[in-house]
Design a protein around this nucleic acid. Structure first.
Lengths: 148, 148
DNA sequence: CAAGATTGAGGCATCAATCTTT
DNA sequence: AAAGATTGATGCCTCAATCTTG
């Protein structure tokens, strides 16, 4: 039951530490890294809608984040050919380079700050529990929307 | 290794859901609840400095949060008798009442959304791992500061 | 009207600077 | 000079409204 407090504390501590290190060593925030990594994970080109599902951000929040990434020259926006309501976001060469560097930093951080601090069996338990919790939270969010 | 992604997703989902429910059913945010609960945990009267350590917020962030709580009539600020640099924050009767209600809502949420979704042994593992991670993050934050 | 995306307004968090007291 | 606390400036996120296309 104290696990909830530990959960909040661990999250706050880890995110803060990782964000700071990423800024120092790769020149970008955790938020930027996550967005760039999700674009790369979608083949280097995804729609805003798709990116919104992958990133933990509202629709408008994503729009403004992409504004900043675009201004930094890391991504471009292009109209989607199939559906003209849709906008596709792509990594620029510069974006790819910056992501590569950031990925090195962040992979190491996830390993040293998170993964290395639990045994194999602990990691399996944590993954299983967190996936269960995350899924049920997502389902509930979906159920809540249609009624509104 | 995917556990990190699950961790972030679970945190975002839980915090969002809990915050919304708390707003609907107790008329306050998770942030407010946490602050009021921490004041109550300190005997209903704590210094700003002490509250800052208990709450996941910067010094100035806390100052503004207490501004809002005070404006809502839930807490009062008084000068500390022992050290005149210090300010003590106390719960008002109204604050106590509101906290009591919020605590009912939040206790149930932590149980149903978090605790009930893992077995006893899973909970023990999760608690152990998260405490370990949280401690090491806190130690590192301490080590990082004195050098600056 | 629904879906995808953007924009305006407002809320909240942080950094850096400042004030008071030790 | 250091510690406790507050304030000004700034940045990011969200809600609601709006625009365009289906």
């Amino acid at each position: 039951m104290q696990a909830w407090g530990a959960f909040l504390a661990a999250h706050a501590g880890l995110v803060r530490a990782m964000d700071q290190t990423l800024r120092e060593r790769a020149g970008m925030s955790l938020q930027w890294y996550d967005a760039l990594a999700q674009i790369a994970g979608g083949g280097g080109r995804v729609t805003m809608r798709e990116l919104e599902r992958r990133v933990l951000l509202s629709q408008s929040g994503l729009s403004r984040l992409v504004d900043r990434l675009q201004q930094a020259g890391l991504v471009t926006r292009t109209a989607a050919p199939s559906d003209r309501r849709s906008v596709e976001v792509s990594l620029t060469p510069r974006g790819r380079t910056r992501l590569r560097r950031a990925r090195e930093v962040q992979s190491e951080q996830v390993r040293t700050r998170f993964a290395d601090r639990m045994s194999q069996v602990e990691a399996e338990t944590v993954l299983r529990v967190l996936c269960r919790i995350g899924h049920e939270a997502a389902e509930e969010a979906q159920r809540a929307e249609p009624s509104g």
